[in-house]
Amino acid sequence: MESRKNIAGSACGLVGLVLTFAGVAGAHRPVVVAGLYGAGALIAPPERPALPDFPDPSAQLDEVRDDFEKLRGYLTDVELSAAAATRLRGLTDLLAALLDRGWAAELLTHDPEGVHVLSRIVRRDLPETVDGFVRTRWWTRMAPGSESPELHLERQLGLLTEDAERLAAGLREAEARRQESHTRYLEERGGTV
C-alpha cells in the first residue's frame, strides 16, 4: 500500500477519475482509469533497499580501544627479555597515543585505512607476535640450540612499530597540510602574515 509504485499509480488513477467525471473518458472510463493507474505504477521509481547500518569510524575506534585494553592486560602477564620489553613498551605507548581520544582520534575518524591499520596491529599482529614467541620459547627450552625466539620477537615488534610510526607520520602530515591550507586561505583572503 505504501510503495512508490502504488502511490504513483493511485495518483494517476485519480487523474483518470477526474477525466471520467469531466466527461473526457467517455464510454472507456474503466480502461482509462486502469490504464493511468498502470502507467503511473510503471513510471514510478523502484523501491531502494535500505543502506546497511555500518558503525561509523569513531565507534570502530572505540571497539579498537576496548580491544587494546584487553591486549594490554594480556601483555602484562608475558615474561620478556629487557630488550623485547623495551620495544614492546615503545609500541604500546605509540598505540595508546594513537588511540587517545584527542586530536589523533579526530584525524583517524576521517582515515578508514588508518583505523584498519590500528585494528590489524591491535587485534591480530601484536597478539600473534607475542603468542608465537611464548609458544616458540617453550619449544626452544625443550630442544635448545635453535635460533632464539627473542630475536624474532624483537624483529617483529620493530616492524609493527614501523607500521604504527608510518601511521602517526601520515596523521602528522595531514595535520600539516590542513594548517598550510588554512594559511593559504588567510593569505588569499587578504590578510598576510
Rank of each mutant, 00 (worst) to 15 (best):
V78E: 00
L80F: 08
A83S: 13
A83G: 11
A84T: 05
A85G: 09
A85T: 11
A85E: 10
L88A: 09
T92D: 06
T92Y: 07
L95T: 05
L95F: 02
A97P: 00
A97W: 05
L98P: 08
L99I: 08
D100C: 08
R101T: 09
W103C: 00
A104Q: 06
L107V: 08
L108F: 00
H110A: 10
D111A: 05
D111Q: 03
V115T: 12
V115A: 08
H116R: 06
V117M: 05
L118E: 06
L118N: 00
S119I: 02
S119W: 04
R123W: 09
R123V: 01
R124G: 08
D125G: 00
D125S: 08
D125M: 01
D131M: 12
D131N: 09
G132M: 04
R137T: 07
W139Q: 13
M142Q: 15
M142R: 14
A143M: 13
G145K: 05
G145W: 02
E147I: 03
S148T: 14
S148K: 01
E150L: 02
L153Q: 05
L153M: 08
L157N: 13
L159W: 06
T161N: 02
T161D: 15
R166C: 06
L167W: 11
R172S: 14
R172A: 15
E173S: 06
A174P: 00
E175N: 04
E175R: 06
R177T: 10
R178K: 14
E180V: 09
T183R: 03
